[in-house]
C-alpha cells in the first residue's frame, strides 16, 4: 500500500463488522451502515467490472453518494455475500451470445441475429468498431443502438461460422 493511503481506503472499507445488508420486503437491497449514518436502499457498482467481479464494490445511495467500499465479498458471511452477489448479477445483467446466426452490414450499421442464453435475439449496432468493448483478449461486449449490452464470454469458444462473421471487427 502506498504511504498514507491506508487511512483513506480503510475509512471507506465496508465489512461484515461495520455494514449490514438485507433485502426489504419487496426484494430490494438495503443496508445499515452506522458509520455513514445510513439506513435504507443502497446501490452497488463494481470498480473493475471486467476483472474483479466480487471485489472493490462501491456502495452508494440513490443520489450516487458513496457510503463505502467493499474490498471483497469474502469480508462478509456466506449469506450476505450471496445476497450481494445476486444484486450485482441484477445490476450487470446482460445476455450472453452463444452463436451469431446472421450479421449483415449496411450503411455503417450492423444487423445481428443471434442465439443467446435468453433465446433468439435481433439487434442493430451502429458503428460496430466503436460499439465493441473489449473486456479482455477473449471477451467482448457489444452495445446496440438502444444501449443494451450483449456479452461474448469467449471469442475462442465461438463456433467457426460465428467467428468468421465477427472476426472482421475484432
Amino acid at each position: 500500500m502506498i504511504k498514507g493511503m491506508e487511512m483513506i481506503t480503510a475509512s471507506l472499507r465496508l465489512t461484515g463488522e461495520n455494514a449490514c445488508f438485507a433485502l426489504n420486503a419487496n426484494g430490494l437491497l438495503t443496508a445499515s451502515i452506522p458509520a455513514a449514518e445510513h439506513r435504507g436502499r443502497v446501490f452497488l457498482s463494481l470498480a473493475f467490472p471486467f476483472e474483479r467481479e466480487e471485489e472493490y464494490i462501491s456502495v452508494q445511495t440513490e443520489e450516487k453518494d458513496e457510503l463505502g467500499m467493499i474490498r471483497s465479498l469474502e469480508d462478509f458471511d456466506a449469506e450476505t455475500a450471496s445476497l450481494l452477489r445476486a444484486e450485482l448479477k441484477k445490476k450487470y445483467f446482460c445476455p450472453k451470445l452463444r452463436k451469431i446466426l446472421k450479421l449483415v452490414e449496411r450503411n455503417g450499421n450492423t444487423y445481428w441475429d443471434c442465439l443467446s442464453d435468453q433465446g433468439d435475439l435481433s439487434f442493430t449496432v451502429r458503428d460496430v468498431h466503436r460499439s465493441l468493448i473489449r473486456a479482455s483478449e477473449d471477451r467482448i461486449f457489444v452495445v446496440d443502438v438502444d444501449g443494451c449490452r450483449y456479452e461474448i464470454e469467449s471469442i475462442a469458444g465461438l463456433d467457426r461460422k460465428s467467428l468468421a462473421k465477427i472476426e472482421l471487427y475484432l
Binding site: 426489504n24 446501490f43 450487470y92 445483467f93 446482460c94 444501449g147 449490452r149
Partner: peptide, 21 residues
C-alpha cells in the same frame, strides 16, 4: 426508474415508505 448497466427497473415508492420493483 432505476438505470442498471444493461437493463432498467421501474420502482414504486409506496406510501408506507417501502420500495417495490
Amino acid at each position: 426508474v432505476e438505470e442498471l448497466i444493461s437493463t432498467l427497473r421501474l420502482v414504486a415508492r409506496r406510501r408506507d415508505g417501502e420500495e417495490e420493483c
